[in-house]
Design a binder for these strands. Sequence first.
RNA 1: GGGCCUGUGGCUUAGCCCGGAUAGAGCGCCGGGCUUCUAACCCGGAUACCGGGGGUUCGAAUCCCCCCAGGCCCGCCA
Length: 554
Amino acid sequence: MFLEARARVEAILREATGEEDVLLADGGDHADLASTVAFGLARKRRQAPARIAQDLATDLAGRLEPDGIAVAATGPYLNFTFGPAYLAASVRAALAPGYGALPPGTGRVVLEHTSANPNGPLHVGHIRNSVIGDTLARAFRKAGYPTEVQYYVNDMGRQIAIVVWGMDHLGLEPGEGEKPDHYTARVYVAANRRLEAEPEITAEVDALMRQVEALDPATVKKFREAVASCLDGFRSTLADLAAPHDRFVHESDFLRIGDMERLLARFERRPEAHRDEVFWIDLSAHGIENRYVLRRSDGTSVYAARDLAYHVWKGRNADRVIDVLGADHKLIGASLQAALRMLGEVAPEIVFFEFVSLPEGSMSTRAGKFVSSDDLIAETRRRALEEVTARRPELSREEREAIARSVARAAIRYDIVRVSPEKATVFDWTTALDFERQSGPYVQYAHARACSILAKAGAWSEAFEYGSPHEVALAKQIARFPALVQQVVGELRPHLLATYARELADLFNTFYHFEPVLRAAGTTRDSRLTLVRAAQNTLGEALETLGIDALASM
RNA sequence: GGGCCUGUGGCUUAGCCCGGAUAGAGCGCCGGGCUUCUAACCCGGAUACCGGGGGUUCGAAUCCCCCCAGGCCCGCCA
């Protein structure tokens, strides 16, 4: 209902003032919506802002009354407050399964996230990408966009060649029960040490890269097997995080099927193209001074060329192309966008996130210096199981373990997504393992409490009468969920969802504390049960969008 | 050297794009609350010259300029 009410206020305010931008904002403590148009009109009308606000309030009151919206001037501010009819309609809407969904969008979305090189396990930096990407994908689906999530697999780069060389020459065997991506890292780290000690090995790695570019069958097979095994490890980690991909697209495909060559041919006809010792594009018209190299002097292709071919393909299959990339890719991303625009192709919208470092410095797969996501997940599950066991000793081990898995995932995903992407973070075990306030488990807990009340309620019928401040505040937060979903996909800011869910849980917990539900009687009991049901549904939908299980009991 | 990002109570952070009404929150600290719907909870208290300095504006954490500090990028790597 919030979206409808806001649109209504905006339209009427526009009509009354003749202003295009009526400066409508959240009313905070004062109201549901507030406008500061009076300040701007003061100059034009040569009247005091407070006087204008007062006149507008009088003028608008009658027109908004049928919608149950009250308007008042407080000094120069115009405050709009939604009444009982709005609350009732909002709570009713929030009872429906799938609440928060927007009318189906016409556009298809292709969203790429994670896409880490398969040279070692995903670490706590990589999964910032996964969690941001997956949350956005869930938000897009909620907002009605058919969405395909892709992982772009680098299966022919130097790092993979180093892994393949290591597999061939170092004789390292996978350990008992060792996860394949961790085995890959062991080989990769050892191979890099050998390369540092014996630089002449570089020539052998270069040879591997040339052979794979030339599509030599035996070499291609080796690369593919090394990559596939590491990816199996990734899939398992991503499944633990509930951040799955619909499709894994291999970089080498664009070489093999000829897309990349066809694309390079298109660039060759451009006036911005230059051929000296290398083939490069001049992007200075787009403010990028570095030469954008697409082919090496030995004729082999670079990553950028394959990536361009990939993005052309994505753009032709979607209306919005979204990439989630680390901030170190900003220049590369801007170059990619500029080159695609030059050809009239769809350029991706890119969500950049800043780095996650360790207290002792930045992470490095090559140096073996990182906290793997698998370790984080295992440790968080262990702590969650301790917590569940302490609270719910009567449950079976299987039940406790299932809850612990969900709680651990909630803690990890929430801890990552709650911080805005442009903020660099330092990985901290203490906050990662925190299950209180401003955490995923805290939101889960509010949901479980709601479920518990509903389970004990017996028969009741829907009612929608709300008067106490706690009821009203909760209902109003519930009402905003669809607007929030719209904002997340519009601005590509998934952390808003985390903030929203936490505030909803806060308001539910306060309501829970002050307003008895089962011990109330008559319409009050019915109305409160209806509100609990709406809160439970909205919390559940918000959690689902965050990729967190909405547990009925924990 | 150039470009981008960040700087908000002791710590973590929202708000900044789209300027307005006392800058929200969590952790930690102090003090309360479980014979009552799950205390992974709730209530109260102390703690902020919003990195510094100029400017624009009736009004600046928010916009502009300069400076300081930290991070990232500037490859025929990916």
